[in-house]
Amino acid sequence: TEYKLVVVGAGGVGKSALTIQLIQNHFVDEYDPTIEDSYRKQVVIDGETCLLDILDTAGQEEYSAMRDQYMRTGEGFLCVFAINNTKSFEDIHQYREQIKRVKDSDDVPMVLVGNKCDLAARTVESRQAQDLARSYGIPYIETSAKTRQGVEDAFYTLVREIRQH
């Protein structure tokens, strides 16, 4: 089974770092803004072998026109913010609204991801993020692309959301 996953969120929150940590098991430290990259990885989730087709997208506003296209083809979405960047957390709402509009559905598989949880300088409390996820009816997972904490959990949870859909 193949799953088309799309990673969305503001610029600099760590979308590529999360994806590369999942696929290649290493942490990319330097920031190089993405336009669009796709990665494929075969994994076993709950005993089922599946192929993850992951689209890593641009957070930069100037590429926002490309969003409709990949939102149409994606089956599930990782909505990523950084726990030390309140603005990126506030941006999640717009991504969710755009996904709902493009998919013409209120019920699209999504996982809210709070990345950079290895950093002490948190400005978005776990509780705020949990409340937001609960209001959307989606899971919330904290990750660190640096330490790998929660990385597999985030992507695998999204696959489970798609399966249950």
Rank of each mutant, 00 (worst) to 15 (best):
T1R: 03
T1M: 07
T1P: 06
Y3K: 13
K4L: 07
K4G: 02
L5R: 00
L5M: 09
V6A: 04
V6M: 05
V7L: 10
V7G: 05
V7H: 00
V7C: 11
V7M: 10
G9L: 01
G9K: 03
A10E: 04
G11F: 14
G11P: 14
G12F: 15
G14M: 00
G14L: 00
G14S: 00
K15C: 05
S16K: 02
S16Q: 01
A17V: 12
A17F: 02
L18W: 01
L18D: 00
I20E: 05
I20G: 02
I20Q: 00
I20R: 02
Q21Y: 13
Q21N: 14
Q21K: 13
Q21L: 12
L22G: 15
L22R: 15
I23S: 05
I23A: 09
I23E: 06
I23W: 03
Q24D: 05
Q24P: 01
N25V: 04
H26D: 07
H26W: 06
H26C: 10
F27G: 02
F27T: 06
F27Q: 07
V28S: 06
D29C: 03
D29S: 04
E30M: 01
E30Y: 00
Y31K: 00
Y31H: 14
Y31E: 12
Y31R: 02
D32T: 11
D32E: 15
D32I: 10
P33I: 05
P33G: 06
P33K: 12
P33D: 01
T34N: 03
T34S: 01
I35Q: 02
I35A: 07
I35K: 01
E36T: 00
E36P: 01
E36I: 00
E36N: 03
E36M: 04
E36S: 00
E36Q: 00
D37G: 01
D37M: 00
D37Q: 01
S38A: 01
S38G: 11
S38E: 06
S38K: 03
S38N: 02
Y39L: 01
R40F: 00
K41M: 05
K41E: 03
Q42A: 02
V43E: 02
V43C: 03
V43W: 07
V44L: 04
V44D: 08
V44T: 07
V44C: 06
I45E: 05
I45D: 10
D46L: 12
D46A: 08
E48L: 02
E48F: 10
T49K: 06
T49Q: 09
C50K: 04
L51E: 03
L51H: 12
L52E: 02
L52H: 01
D53R: 03
D53Y: 09
I54C: 06
L55C: 02
L55D: 15
L55F: 07
D56P: 03
D56E: 03
D56F: 01
T57H: 11
T57A: 08
A58K: 14
A58N: 14
A58S: 15
G59S: 13
Q60I: 15
E61S: 11
E61Y: 14
E61L: 14
E62H: 15
E62S: 05
E62L: 08
E62R: 15
E62V: 09
Y63E: 14
Y63L: 08
S64Y: 09
S64G: 13
A65Y: 07
M66A: 14
M66Q: 11
R67S: 14
R67D: 15
R67V: 13
D68Q: 09
Q69A: 07
Y70W: 04
Y70P: 04
M71A: 03
M71C: 02
R72W: 04
R72A: 11
R72P: 08
R72K: 00
G74H: 04
G74C: 12
E75I: 05
E75L: 05
G76D: 05
G76Y: 10
F77L: 02
F77K: 01
F77V: 03
L78G: 01
L78H: 02
C79F: 12
C79N: 04
C79K: 02
C79Y: 06
V80G: 02
V80C: 10
F81W: 11
F81D: 02
A82C: 05
A82T: 06
A82F: 02
A82Y: 01
I83W: 08
I83H: 09
I83F: 07
I83G: 10
N84R: 03
N84A: 10
N84H: 11
N84F: 08
N84P: 02
N85Q: 07
N85V: 07
N85I: 06
N85D: 10
N85E: 07
T86D: 05
K87P: 09
K87Y: 04
S88R: 04
S88Y: 03
E90W: 02
E90R: 05
E90Y: 04
D91G: 06
D91H: 09
H93C: 12
H93E: 06
H93R: 10
H93Y: 11
Y95D: 08
Y95V: 12
Y95H: 00
Y95R: 01
R96K: 07
R96M: 07
R96V: 10
R96P: 06
R96Q: 06
E97D: 12
Q98G: 03
Q98C: 00
Q98T: 07
I99K: 02
K100I: 01
R101A: 04
R101F: 04
R101M: 04
R101H: 04
R101I: 05
V102F: 04
K103I: 05
K103G: 07
K103F: 13
D104L: 06
D104S: 08
D107L: 02
V108M: 08
V108I: 03
P109M: 12
M110K: 00
M110V: 07
M110C: 04
V111N: 09
V111H: 08
V111A: 11
L112D: 11
V113M: 12
V113A: 12
V113N: 08
G114C: 13
G114F: 08
N115G: 14
K116S: 15
C117T: 13
C117R: 08
D118T: 13
L119N: 15
L119W: 14
L119Q: 15
A120K: 10
A121E: 14
T123N: 09
T123P: 12
E125D: 08
E125Q: 12
E125I: 11
S126I: 08
S126H: 07
S126P: 11
Q128S: 12
Q128V: 07
A129H: 08
A129D: 00
A129T: 11
Q130A: 09
Q130D: 09
Q130I: 04
D131A: 12
D131R: 11
D131C: 00
L132D: 12
L132K: 05
L132V: 08
L132G: 09
A133G: 09
R134W: 10
R134Y: 12
R134T: 07
Y136W: 15
Y136G: 10
Y136T: 09
G137R: 11
I138V: 12
I138Y: 02
I138K: 00
P139Q: 14
P139G: 05
P139Y: 09
P139F: 14
P139C: 14
E142G: 12
E142F: 10
E142Q: 09
E142P: 11
T143D: 12
T143H: 06
A145M: 13
A145N: 15
T147Y: 13
T147E: 15
R148Q: 14
R148E: 14
R148V: 14
Q149C: 04
Q149W: 07
Q149Y: 04
G150C: 03
G150K: 11
G150M: 02
V151P: 14
E152R: 12
E152C: 11
D153T: 14
D153Q: 01
A154E: 09
A154N: 06
A154S: 06
A154C: 13
F155K: 06
F155A: 10
F155C: 14
Y156M: 10
Y156T: 14
Y156E: 15
Y156N: 10
T157A: 14
L158G: 06
L158M: 08
V159Y: 13
V159L: 14
R160C: 13
R160K: 09
I162Y: 12
R163H: 01
R163I: 14
Q164M: 11
H165V: 11
